[in-house]
């Protein structure tokens, strides 16, 4: 059951990503990216990361993609995107390079480099406490400094976005 779900969801995610990179209309591109992100959220649930799946849906598929769609509609971008300056045959080398990259990654995956130190957070342990509670505990103990730096990062990003989007500085 789980493996069927993985194959179905993975296939949909890859197909949506393929449509994303070949679709002309930017609005459809954004919708295909949302589809990929929803499929990735399902994969997170299969990997026992329920909190991450919820955050993926709310933050990525919700907030970030709404921002993208809003900017696309605000700027009224046309589907036609070729200009006179474009290099004519750039698609073929790009696809070949992509296939080469995938081959290199798969060769690395086939070598036995994927061992690592096992930690204590087994599925039973996570289920006894709850995924969200564990993440919350870690966030305010071991990862307190990164968490605080993240707040500064978001603050700076908000100020930067307002400054850049202002008409007159």
């Amino acid at each position: 059951m789980e493996s069927y779900l993985f194959y179905i969801v993975g296939t949909i995610a890859v197909l949506a990503a393929v449509y994303l990179i070949f679709e002309r209309n930017p609005v459809f591109c954004a919708l295909y990216l949302i589809q990929t992100m929803v499929c990735i959220a399902v994969l997170y649930i299969l990997l026992e990361a329920q909190f991450i799946a919820a955050v993926q849906m709310i933050v990525y598929a919700g907030a970030i993609m709404v921002l993208f769609l809003f900017v696309i509609m605000l700027l009224n971008i046309k589907g036609d995107e070729e200009s006179k300056r474009s290099f004519p045959f750039r698609k073929i080398p790009a696809i070949l390079m992509g296939i080469g990259l995938l081959t290199v990654i798969c060769i690395i995956l086939k070598s036995k480099l994927l061992q690592g130190k096992q930690d204590v957070y087994t599925v039973a342990h996570i289920e006894s406490l709850g995924n969200t509670q564990l993440i919350g505990n870690l966030l305010f103990t071991d990862y307190l400094l990164p968490f605080e730096i993240t707040s500064i990062l978001l603050f700076v990003a908000a100020i930067g976005a307002i400054m850049l989007a202002k008409r007159k500085l």
Binding site: G10, A13, V14, A17, V18, L20, I21, P26, C29, T36, L43, L47, F68, V71, I72, L75, I77, E81, E82, S83, S86, R90, K91, A94, I95, M97, G98, I99, L101, L102, I105, C106, L109, L114
Partner: peptide, 24 residues
């Protein structure tokens, strides 16, 4: 999962290389 991740990453790289629209 790692192969699926690699495929999606590769599609992202190809998309960056072939698209001309900054938002895409």
């Amino acid at each position: 999962y790692l192969v699926l991740s690699a495929i999606l990453f590769m599609l992202g790289v190809v998309g960056v290389l072939i698209r001309r629209n900054a938002i895409v």
